[in-house]
């Protein structure tokens, strides 16, 4: 490991939304991401997990500057890209790419596969003429396990798994150093999921690509990640090296989240004690005071309503944000 490629510090992303309950249509801010910090080592995978609406996708999109962050810094390869203008950011776009969740809507239905993969090559002046571009597209399409005769076809002619391969080829076209994978296998069948995961791992080994892997599927995240962060209501509540985190969970939310995952093992399902959370995730428009998880937490005490617990290093790199832990020591 040679240093961090990406370092996000105290990232905040607020969206302005109209308050429908107000007569004058006043605006309120929806704190989708509220002070998230983490780093990703070069050539490593950081898995970001959480339930829908926890802000994990917003973190990924903001890291790629698809949104302009409200506050905080995003250090990529030594430079802060958080405040750059679109023009200043352009050279970084080549180095940072994204693979989307839905292989059905993330490919333009009116472009051929060759155009979809070739466009980034042209935009970033990575090829000097048509034949060079065609050659490179062919190379990319073979790399993701499709055939050269697929180049002239349109997205609707492919299955979900094949489309996700096209999306990966498009992301790889600019030879990026960093790829945000936003739920890349969630829309696929399990037998196809494994194909795509193996493909992503293969490219990491070959090209040393760094991934931010966003998913709600805890077993997939465990499989692919080196380090994992757990988000709840716009905040990182726990982060650590993958095995350390999965085996010694510290935060009550992480514990209940993990215990809710049904394992493909009927015997374990019978014996395992589940922590079943009550209620739903609170609205990010109106988050609870103090710790965001306190309304569903069994161990919540008075201090949890008053102060937001900071993310502290509990043991050598394993961090958690919970008052229980800081009281203990």
């Amino acid at each position: 490991m040679n240093g961090e490629l990406l370092k996000i510090s105290d990232l905040k992303m607020y969206f302005r939304v109209r308050d429908v309950s107000s007569w004058l249509g006043a605006h309120r801010s929806l704190k989708a991401v509220d002070g998230v910090s983490f780093g990703i080592g070069r050539g490593r995978t950081f898995g970001l997990v959480g339930e829908s609406g926890c802000g994990k996708t917003t973190v990924g999109r903001t890291a790629l500057r698809l949104y302009r962050p409200t506050d905080g810094s995003i250090i990529f390869d030594g430079a802060d890209i958080a405040g750059l203008s679109d023009k200043e950011f352009f050279p970084y776009r080549r180095k940072m790419q994204m693979i989307f969740q839905d292989p059905f809507t993330s490919l333009d239905p009116r472009q051929t596969v060759g155009d979809i993969i070739g466009t980034p090559l042209t935009v970033h002046h990575l090829v000097s003429n048509r034949s060079e571009r065609a050659e490179r597209v062919k190379e990319l399409i073979n790399m993701v396990g499709l055939r050269s005769d697929h180049i002239g076809r349109y997205p609707h002619e492919f299955s979900g798994g094949q489309r996700q391969r096209i999306g990966i080829a498009r992301a790889l076209a600019t030879m990026p150093e960093f790829i945000v994978c936003d739920e890349p296998v969630s829309a696929l069948d399990v037998s196809i999921q494994a194909q795509i995961i193996n493909l992503l791992e293969e490219f990491q080994e070959k090209f040393g690509i760094t991934y931010l892997f966003i998913s709600h599927d805890l077993s997939v995240v465990r499989h692919i990640s080196h380090r994992v962060g757990v988000m709840y209501l716009g905040r990182l509540v726990e982060a650590g090296e993958v095995n350390e985190l999965y085996e010694n969970m510290l935060h009550p939310y992480t514990k209940s989240l993990m215990s809710a995952v049904p394992a493909a093992d009927p015997e374990a399902a019978k014996t395992r004690r589940r922590i079943i959370l009550e209620g739903d995730v609170p609205s990010p428009l109106d988050p609870p005071s103090g710790c965001p998880f306190r309304t569903r937490c069994r161990e919540a005490s008075a201090v949890c309503a008053e102060q937001t617990p900071p993310l502290v290093d509990v043991r050598s790199g394993h961090m958690a944000a919970c008052h229980k832990l800081s009281i203990k020591g």
């Binding site: 494994a194 194909q195 193996n198 077993s219 999965y246 394992a263």
Partner: peptide, 24 residues
């Protein structure tokens, strides 16, 4: 094949997923 392509939660050991090749 279906069972082999599921990544287990329990195992700390990193095993390579065995996908079923091809599509339905």
């Amino acid at each position: 094949g279906l069972l082999a392509s599921v990544s287990g939660m329990g195992s700390g050991e990193k095993k390579k997923l065995v996908p079923i090749p091809g599509s339905p």
